[in-house]
Amino acid sequence: MNALDIAYMWDLVPVIAGYIPLTLFMALVSMVLALILSAMLAIVRVLKLPVIDRGVAIFISFFRGTPLLVQLFLFYYGLPQLFSFMTNINGVTAAIIGLTLHFSAYMAESIRGAILGVDRSQWEAAASIGMTQGQLLRRIILPQAARTAAPTLMNYFIDMIKGTSLAFTLGVTEMMGAAQKEAAGSFLYLEAFLVVALFYWGIVEILSVGQRRMEQYLGKAVAR
C-alpha cells in the first residue's frame, strides 16, 4: 500500500481552490432565492390563504419528502423531456433551481415556526393601530421571526454549501467535479477526495465561527 502522496495533494490545492468561487456562487444565489421563496411560503402557511395554502403544503411535503439528488435529476434530465425550453438549461442553473426549491421547503417550516413564536398579542396590537396585514408582517412580525430563525437558517446555508457538490452529477465542474476529474487522471482517489473534503470542512468551519458570533450578537439583541 502506498503512503499518501503529499506532494500531489499540495499540487491539487490551487486547482481545487480555483473552484471555490463557483461553489460559493451557487450556494449564495440559492440561499438568497430560497430566503425569499421560503418567507413567501411561510407567510402563505401562517395566514392560511385559501387554496394556495393547500398547494404550498404539497410543495413543502414533496421537496422535504424526496432526496435532493432525485430532484436535481428530475430538473436537469427529466423535465426537458416535457418542456423543450428547458433543454438548454445548464448544470449550474439546474443546480441553483434544485437547491433553492429543496431548501426553501425546509426553511419555510423554520420561518413559519418563528413567525408563530411571536406573541399573538403583538399581531393584535399592530392591527389595533390600523396596520394592514402586510405592514404588520413587515414591520413587527418578520423582524422578530428573522432573529429567532437565523441560527437554523444559517445551518441550512451550511447544508447548502455541501449540497452544491451534487451539481457535479449534472456535469458541473465545481470543487467536487474538479477533484473527480483530477482523480480520474492520476488514479490518486484518496488524495483528491481528501483535499476536497478538507476544503469543504474549512469553509464550513469558517462559517460556523461566523454563525456563533451572529448568535451571540442576536442573543444580546433579543434578551428579554
Partner: peptide, 10 residues
C-alpha cells in the same frame, strides 16, 4: 391591552 402587547423589536 391587558398585557401591554408592546412591539418587542421597537
Amino acid at each position: 391591552f391587558q398585557n401591554y402587547a408592546l412591539f418587542a423589536n421597537k
